[in-house]
Amino acid sequence: MSATSASPAPLARRIYPMRATDAPVHRFAVLAPVGLAIVAVLGLTAFSTAGSLAVGAGIAAYTVGAIVFGAKLRRHHDHARLGLANAVTLLRLALVSSLVIPLVGLAPAPIAIIVVATISLSLDGVDGWLARRQGLSSRFGGSFDMEVDSVFALVLAALAVVVGGAPWIVLLLGLPRYLFFIAGAIWPWLYDPLPPRYSGKVVAVIQMITLIVLQLPGLPHALAIALTVGVLGALGWSFGRDIVWLWRRKA
């Protein structure tokens, strides 16, 4: 087959949704039940004190996420392979969904929460590297990773406050992405693409590490507030810089 006859395929895939029989969609559908099993196993072992209803909530959270991103995959993944990066992000979705279980069940399990959250955070740096290494970066992959990160931060913040008894100000650490999204609905130029910034990634990692530290039992409220205020300042600087850049670009 000549290069000319092969070239329209990626463009067509960007315009038209994939079929259920296409390889990426099929692989995603095969891997999704594995994530479901991970949520169930963690719910019945690490978070067993949360109760069956809470386990059901974690399974429901994962199922909704898998369905939503499965639909997005069909429209926005313009490669012939799913890629290891998206498989890793799907695993992270399962780990984050399992954290919904102690939140809904109001079940203190700080060690298990910290272990699961640390594994998820460690994998966060793997999926992007895999996508670049395999040459399979896509609009879908970037969105999938970002939304899992956003839910991860919100769930950890809620766990720290509702289950761990941290000050309510900690909840603000889980809201920046959603506040930015709401602002973008008012000012659409906030949705314009941003240049990659290493400093922004560093701030995001600091945010997640802080949220994991805040799961520690017996952490003094004064220290929790100090950590939260410091990270909120860093997030404000990072988001503020991006907003100024987008505003100047619009102007």
Rank of each mutant, 00 (worst) to 15 (best):
I186Q: 08
L194A: 12
S137Y: 15
G184C: 01
H79V: 03
A6M: 13
L44I: 03
G200A: 07
S98Y: 09
S98N: 08
L93H: 06
A107P: 04
A166I: 08
V203N: 08
R197T: 08
F180V: 00
G58M: 01
L179G: 13
A157Y: 01
Y16W: 15
V231W: 09
F181D: 07
A3R: 15
V68E: 02
V68D: 07
P108S: 11
I206S: 08
G141I: 06
K250C: 11
D22P: 02
P195I: 15
W187I: 14
T21R: 07
V161E: 04
V163E: 02
F239Y: 09
R81T: 14
R13L: 11
V64K: 02
V39W: 00
V64P: 00
L11E: 10
L232A: 08
F144C: 05
D145I: 02
L82T: 00
F152H: 03
G56V: 05
A107R: 08
L82C: 14
T49Q: 07
D242A: 14
R14N: 12
R241F: 08
G236K: 10
V161I: 10
V161L: 11
I243D: 09
L190R: 04
Y16R: 15
L91F: 02
A109E: 12
L106K: 14
G135P: 10
V163A: 02
S2F: 14
L216K: 06
V34C: 12
G236H: 09
A234W: 07
R19T: 06
V163W: 01
S238C: 03
L172G: 14
L194E: 12
A66C: 05
A160Y: 10
